[in-house]
Nucleic acid binder design. Structure first.
Lengths: 116, 116
DNA sequence: CGGTATCCGGGTAGATACTG
DNA sequence: CAGTATCTACCCGGATACCG
């Protein structure tokens, strides 16, 4: 799975933790997934598809696996028929939410200031 | 220049300001460039190449143009020989630095917690 | 319901050469 | 010094089909 760059983080200098953080929340979907989990607490797979309507099944699965592997979310499987899977934030993942909030605030201010 | 996505930000819902912010600081180099500007104040083109040794000339130019176009940095040209160009943060760009700092802090904590 | 597998196009980023 | 120009490789993400 090419999504998993956790072993090839290009850390050559002291600045690399920003690069690391950006690798984890970067890309088109991961921050949005974390944001929704921050808002709703627990989300099932098909609920994600309703919250983030534009995402494909493949990308959703791929990004959820990436976030799980990097310990930002947990995946809880209920052995029922039909299958039921719930996703939620880990403690590490929860610590990211304030940063996402600030990015949201900055983005709103940016639009306002840029267009003045 | 395909770097410029400012006209095709995929904003369909209320969450899109995170997406917007991520488009602006996302990718491999932009956050790093802003971070260096936050540290040093004013940076010349070839100084960037010393601070961020892995970046190619092409990508540096491309990313600087993108950031300038989106009003996060200013480009000051001195009409001298040899040419001298200085880059610095705009007010909008400066507001981004605290977020980058927090991403740096989160990244360090993440490494620590993840490996426990 | 919650996934996998496979194919495919387009854009990102690298290498190299050249320039005012 | 501070860039352009061009050519190329790779991989991200979309579409579609299938499965336990």
């Amino acid at each position: 799975m090419p999504e998993d760059r956790s072993n090839k983080v290009s850390c050559n200098n002291y600045r690399c933790e920003i690069e690391l953080t950006l690798e984890i929340i970067g890309g088109k979907w991961k921050a949005l997934i974390l944001w929704e989990l921050g808002n709703h607490g627990v989300i099932r797979f098909n609920e994600f598809q309703r919250y983030i309507t534009e995402i494909s099944q493949k990308m959703l699965t791929q990004q959820l696996r990436y976030l799980e592997k990097n310990k930002l979310i947990t995946r809880k499987i209920y052995p029922v028929v039909p299958p039921m899977v719930e996703y939620s934030l880990t403690e590490l993942g929860k610590k990211l939410i304030p940063i996402l909030k600030e990015m949201d605030v900055w983005g709103k201010d940016y639009i306002f200031e840029r267009d003045k």
